[in-house]
Design a protein around this nucleic acid. Structure first.
Lengths: 221, 221
DNA sequence: CGATTCTCGATTGTCGACAATCGATTCCAG
DNA sequence: CTGGAATCGATTGTCGACAATCGAGAATCG
């Protein structure tokens, strides 16, 4: 029985990742290795390794001899995240549409049904979870390990942005209608349509977030 | 004057990366932290951090409490690398085709001309360099920092595969004619055509490499 | 008063020591 | 001879100590 076989480094990285993604650590916030090592109850070398992992995932930034800080959010950041996601998910959707069988179809339907239930839910967190789960499901089903690796880091960033806009602008988008075209194209086994559907979805989400972001900027200015 | 401001960790990572990419460390080869720390003349913690970086770039693999080893090559590995590259370069080509101006046009032409000179060269290394440079140029010109980051790691893997087939099967492909469609589509400011051209190029390269790989397998079996 | 240099506290960069873990080998009971 | 437990060497996992570096403010000079 291997249950708790994560190294200290992995656990520390997971902890920090969660704190950033859930907004408990704010964008731009400064992080010092000693503080973290006391707070996480682990050595400084361990904290350092965890921070390096998060740096590779592009969640935090390092300034040599000066410190670490949580990445800042900007319009450009939003644009980069969503366009990159579009490229990766586009590949995933194409691959899934080619190889779809009964098992895959069942998983996609399950993810989509969860999305529909979440639609009526008042719980903003569940809406976000269901949405992210849908996208991650498609990527996993592509059977492409390198793609899944790259997507993992990116999806954390997306989760971060999602939770952040869900806080400021609850329940904006219409989950069901926004995702249905993707499901239909994949189940129709049409790779090009699936790629286009998921990329259109990404562009629409980006436009939405950019609008909210501008509004928020305006308010705080 | 900042010349040599790389940390030991970065230097060690660069050194190991180069050794892997140039084939001085063979696929599957086992790496121990102590050996490396003696060979590189640096502490074990430093070596460890460098190895973590290369792990994030997917060049090496770690087995907990057991060791590190250079990643192995397989058909699946080839397929994943080239398809992922297609997705990333596709996005880059699309972005460049949209924003192309005189400066960008000049850089693309320069990269393409280098490719044409390398064509006649007998130096396999220069052929590889020119080829990689062409692809990296397009990605850089896209003005997309996250994309460039992700592509960097992937391009090391591609370089590795390139040098490896160049060793076994020198001067196979026709550099000029394989890349011209990409240049033409971008300079014609046609995003979709540019994306398709660079993805077709990737698929053709993949097919080529897979054929060579199977041949090599057959010989050594 | 302004600009430059110096000093100092804080933080990261680097390192080797010690503990935890693994895998192969040895040893022993049956 | 065989199966399994104990042992041992090798390697990674974790940690805190010390050195290098940076940024801000004090001190100095024109």
């Amino acid at each position: 029985m291997k249950i708790d076989k994560l190294s200290f480094v992995d656990r520390a990285a997971a902890q920090l990742r969660s704190e950033i993604v859930h907004g408990r650590l704010l964008p731009g916030e400064r992080l010092t290795e000693i503080d973290l090592s006391e707070r996480l109850g682990t050595g400084r070398g361990t904290v350092r390794a965890a921070l390096s992992i998060l740096e590779a995932e592009d969640l935090i930034v390092r300034q040599p001899y000066s410190g670490w800080s949580v990445r800042d959010v900007s319009e450009k950041e939003l644009w980069e995240t969503y366009t990159l996601r579009g490229a990766l998910e586009g590949l995933a959707a194409r691959l899934v549409a080619i190889t779809v069988d009964e098992a895959i179809e069942a998983k996609i339907n399950a993810a989509f049904e969860r999305l529909q239930s979440a639609e009526s839910s008042k719980d903003g967190g569940e809406r976000v979870d269901a949405d992210l789960n849908f996208h991650r499901t498609i990527v996993d089903l592509a059977g492409h390990a390198s793609l899944a690796r790259q997507y993992f880091g990116l999806s954390n960033k997306v989760e971060w942005l999602y939770r952040w806009s869900e806080t400021h602008w609850p329940s904006r988008i219409d989950l069901t209608s926004w995702h249905r075209p993707i499901v239909e194209a994949i189940l129709a086994r049409d790779p090009l349509a699936a790629e286009k559907a998921i990329q259109d979805h990404g562009e629409a989400s980006l436009a939405d977030d950019l609008r909210d972001f501008a509004e928020l900027r305006r308010q705080s200015a």
